[in-house]
Nucleic acid binder design. Structure first.
Lengths: 123, 123
DNA sequence: GTACGACTTCAAGTACGCTTGAAGTCAAGA
DNA sequence: TCTTGACTTCAAGCGTACTTGAAGTCGTAC
């Protein structure tokens, strides 16, 4: 499989696939007359990457997640630790959004016309 | 008041205040022998900016919020519309975080060792 | 008068996740 | 053979919100 087909299967741009290789998210692909050649396992890897992105991991974190070097990676402890930490992050984010929402609602409840004169903000 | 004092009062770096002027968030300050001179109203403006940022507005949106040109700005309708729209955005964001959390929890519930072989992700 | 800190402008750098462009190579179809 | 489209590398650009650096000016204290 060449990059175009891989990208189609994964729903990505070819430039993205190259970028992932460049930042070490994908192992350097073998080349056949200069072109990258892939097996189906790379589709799986891209699926996992997409999943992790959706779950809120940055690409650098995804690299950690997929990194197979440590002993923990053989037991599945590694990614579980990272996932648990991300859950905590998400909780914090949720709380922050709650705060933003409260702030907005409070301002909306104020009858002021000009934000710069709003007693709930400027005090 | 000169930039250093304003920045101290607002809890910002002087570079940030200059940046805000550059992008039009603050009106261009008058200069006295080359230096920016401010009145206290600028502190209020920076307070509103900080509030809006906390509430999730981008700086470009804050500019909209503070923009006094339209007729709506005299009635307070303008910022209320923007705030209501932001509330909707925040709801969407919250939902997305809920999705991320579910994804993570589901993966954690799976007994798999290798994410690339996890049936809940790769399928 | 000189040292010092705070100020000035302008340009470039940072992080993140890509995309875009230039210039060139390769394989398949007409 | 020639065209076409997909590929290659390498470098630079985008958006957001700033920060940093260079090179120079200003005001105050000594």
């Amino acid at each position: 499989m060449i990059i175009g087909e891989l990208a189609r299967l994964a729903g990505l741009a070819t430039s993205t696939v190259r970028y992932y290789e460049e930042i070490g998210l994908l192992p350097r692909a073998a080349r056949a007359s200069g072109r990258r050649v892939y097996g189906y396992e790379t589709v799986n890897r891209l699926t996992v990457i997409a999943f992790a992105k959706q779950a809120g991991f940055t690409l650098a974190e995804v690299r950690q997640l997929l990194d197979g070097s440590a002993s923990e990676s053989r037991t599945g402890v590694r990614w579980r630790k990272l996932a648990a930490a991300k859950l905590v992050e998400l909780e914090a984010l949720e709380a922050q959004i709650g705060t933003m929402t409260s702030l907005l609602k409070e301002a909306l409840r104020c009858g002021c016309v000009d934000l710069e004169l709003c007693g709930k903000i400027v005090k």
